[in-house]
Amino acid sequence: QVALSRTQVCGILREELFQGDAFHQSDTHIFIIMGASGDLAKKKIYPTIWWLFRDGLLPENTFIVGYARSRLTVADIRKQSEPFFKATPEEKLKLEDFFARNSYVAGQYDDAASYQRLNSHMNALHLGSQANRLFYLALPPTVYEAVTKNIHESCMSQIGWNRIIVEKPFGRDLQSSDRLSNHISSLFREDQIYRIDHYLGKEMVQNLMVLRFANRIFGPIWNRDNIACVILTFKEPFGTEGRGGYFDEFGIIRDVMQNHLLQMLCLVAMEKPASTNSDDVRDEKVKVLKCISEVQANNVVLGQYVGNPDGEGEATKGYLDDPTVPRGSTTATFAAVVLYVENERWDGVPFILRCGKALNERKAEVRLQFHDVAGDIFHQQCKRNELVIRVQPNEAVYTKMMTKKPGMFFNPEESELDLTYGNRYKNVKLPDAYERLILDVFCGSQMHFVRSDELREAWRIFTPLLHQIELEKPKPIPYIYGSRGPTEADELMKRVGFQYEGTYKWVNPHKL
């Protein structure tokens, strides 16, 4: 086992960053958080920038500027975001240094004079007029057009580079997404736009490419001749908990499936790229999406959770019991969808996408189930092999396979070949997804960000279904809070070829 401390991990990262040409360590950078008073800024962006600063992973002359409508001070920003920093008493001095680099400007999102004030403020910072500028839009999409237009007109660096990070949702359907994309691309070049999907920053999602293309053993079996089906799962054990009003506007397909799960599907299904260059990788992902037809209604199961009468606390409440959810809402909190990649490698292999709230566990994984062994000599005792990439929690890679049961006879039983990170790298604290992705933006690497043509294809696949749901308002199937979801989803999976045995229990190697 390799035991690495946080300091050692960050030392390795620093070495990698400083050796590259793309990370300008000594240049002045300004990180501007648009929507600095909001939840995302408070819980994710400010803490992430602090962790990067604490670990010495930001360029040395980096300033952080918050911008929002609320009249706040840096002290206010500190008060609301610091509880999420997880700072230790030993880091007190470092924390003071961090907040000394912070400033805040209040202004409207659609007022040109406010942006001119913001620009004057940035120019007044040390070497601010020639600094590289990175704008993070932690804002609702309704203000994107006004904000990007004003940034472009008043706040661009004339000497350094300018980059803009856009948070999902990128529209509600193909038409609104196209409108937003066309607007942003009329102001910024594609190499300046970073559409963030934080799932692409997760260690195991990034590991998929290495697993596939750096190991000879997987190449020959990664196709329709050997793989019976692919299941991509995202499960949350909690409901909307008072935030249903926002969720109800989008629903589970827009929230998770059309982005996170579809991105994971691309990494499983794509061909080997010409290189690890950002556009070479994204070219292959677009090719996969172009091979997927629009979702067919007979390959869809929609569910909505109801309270568990035997549960406790939140578990007793259904989705419609959330006071922020519109009365009688038919918005799905669970969806199972089957897609097919219609190309030579994957023809006929079902890709089953499942996601839901208020389920029995927290889990995100990719599961490849292989065909049955031909010419069975073990009297149907063999179960199908599976390769599982567990994204969260407890990152893991393992192969479910058959071995001989101890004893006199040739009785096979299920076991696993474990390729888990935790076994080799004991207690290594890896940077989280937002840390990686923000560092990628500083480096100018777009590999783990969504390109406009990729986004367009993703919406093309799901828009007809979303429009049909909005028009017909089908009643989702009720499922109990804390269950596996509607049984109809299991029946759909069985119908397209997935075999669920229920006889195997994964042993978490992190707890051995």
Rank of each mutant, 00 (worst) to 15 (best):
D255G: 11
D255S: 13
V256Q: 15
V256G: 10
M257W: 01
M257Q: 06
L261P: 04
M264H: 10
L265A: 11
K272C: 14
K272T: 09
T276F: 13
N277E: 11
K285E: 06
K285V: 05
K287R: 14
K287M: 05
L289K: 02
C291S: 10
Q296W: 07
A297R: 12
N298W: 09
N299D: 12
V301W: 00
V301R: 04
V301Y: 03
L302S: 03
V306K: 06
G307M: 07
G311I: 09
E312Y: 08
A315W: 06
T316E: 10
Y319P: 00
Y319R: 00
D322E: 03
P323H: 08
P323V: 11
T324G: 14
P326Q: 14
R327N: 12
G328A: 04
S329R: 04
S329P: 01
A332P: 07
A332H: 02
V337W: 03
Y340K: 09
Y340W: 06
E342C: 07
E342G: 04
E342V: 05
E344A: 12
W346T: 02
W346S: 02
W346F: 04
G348P: 00
I352D: 00
C355D: 02
G356Y: 00
K357H: 11
R362M: 13
K363I: 03
K363H: 14
E365N: 03
V366E: 03
V366W: 03
R367P: 02
R367Y: 05
Q369I: 12
Q369V: 15
F370R: 00
H371A: 08
H371L: 07
A374T: 12
G375V: 07
D376E: 06
H379G: 12
Q380E: 13
Q380H: 06
Q381D: 10
N385H: 13
R390C: 14
V397H: 03
T399M: 10
M402I: 10
K404A: 15
G407Q: 04
M408A: 14
M408T: 14
P412W: 14
E413I: 06
E413S: 11
E414H: 14
L417S: 13
L417C: 15
T420C: 14
G422R: 10
G422D: 07
R424H: 13
K429P: 15
K429T: 14
L430V: 04
Y434I: 11
I438E: 00
L439F: 05
L439Y: 06
D440I: 02
V441Y: 01
F442Y: 09
F442N: 02
M447P: 15
F449M: 05
V450F: 14
R451Q: 03
R451A: 06
R451D: 02
D453R: 08
D453E: 15
D453C: 05
E454K: 01
L455C: 04
E457M: 04
E457T: 03
A458D: 08
W459K: 13
T463F: 08
P464W: 03
Q468A: 14
I469D: 07
L471V: 11
E472H: 09
P474N: 11
P476D: 02
P476I: 06
P478L: 05
P478Y: 07
Y479F: 00
I480E: 11
I480D: 11
Y481N: 14
Y481L: 06
Y481G: 04
R484V: 10
G485M: 03
P486Q: 01
T487R: 07
T487M: 05
E488P: 07
E488L: 09
A489R: 01
E491R: 08
R495K: 06
R495H: 09
V496E: 12
F498N: 14
Q499M: 13
Y500S: 11
E501C: 05
E501G: 04
G502D: 15
T503M: 13
Y504E: 15
V507H: 14
P509L: 10
K511I: 13
K511A: 07
